[in-house]
């Protein structure tokens, strides 16, 4: 019992990661767009779980707030409106599916071939382990949010400001694009 609990606690990241992968596969494979959105939502929640298990509490919550609270709802909104029409999809997948799958597989093979040594090499398990003492740097006095905001508002202030401008531009652009032309 205890052993099991310890294992679960230790491998939390892997569990969340595998669940996220399942959600992603469901999202891509689902026939109905609403089901896709559901899969997407699940993936996002699981990714938030991954963030949490990587000691990024603030980011995990932000992930849920931004994705689950905003983006996926927008997706769902649009999907519901679009699926209102009686238009039936001719097929779920594109015509070039087979070639795409082949390309992905080749890409994955190349990727693994290049980074094989780095990832699965003999020394990798030693070099790449996430040491618990390093987590303290992320968690200044139990306040991950403070740490993140320090980084954000001191070192990366310019990107942050640029981001806000981009958000504004996106806002205006979205409104212009989606606005109905009044006849």
């Amino acid at each position: 019992m205890e052993h099991l609990l310890v294992t679960i606690g230790r491998d939390m990241f892997a569990i969340f990661g595998v669940l996220a992968l399942c959600g992603g596969i469901f999202m891509v494979a689902a026939k109905s767009a609403v089901h896709s959105v559901l899969g997407f939502l699940f993936t996002m929640l699981c990714v938030a779980g991954c963030f949490l298990s990587l000691d990024a509490e603030f980011l995990g919550m932000a992930q849920i707030l931004v994705y689950a609270g905003g983006i996926v709802v927008l997706f769902l909104f649009v999907v519901m409106l679009v699926e209102l029409s009686k238009y039936k999809e001719k097929g779920v997948f594109q015509l070039q599916t087979r070639s795409a799958v082949v390309a992905v597989v080749i890409g994955a093979a190349v990727f693994i071939g290049v980074f094989r040594n780095l990832l699965f090499g003999v020394a990798s398990s030693e070099a790449l382990v996430l040491r618990p003492e390093l987590a303290q740097g992320l968690n200044v006095a139990q306040q991950n949010a403070q740490a993140v905001s320090r980084g954000l508002f001191s070192d990366y202030l310019l990107p942050f400001e640029i981001l806000s401008v981009i958000l504004l531009v996106a806002l205006v652009g979205a409104v212009v694009l989606a606005k109905r032309e009044r006849v």
């Binding site: 980011l59 993140v148 981001l163 694009l177």
Partner: peptide
Amino acid sequence: QAFALLVMGFAAAEVAVGLA
């Protein structure tokens, strides 16, 4: 983490425009 936060913001902007 700060960069991830920025990426999240970009993603939101991208979704807004993309959905539009």
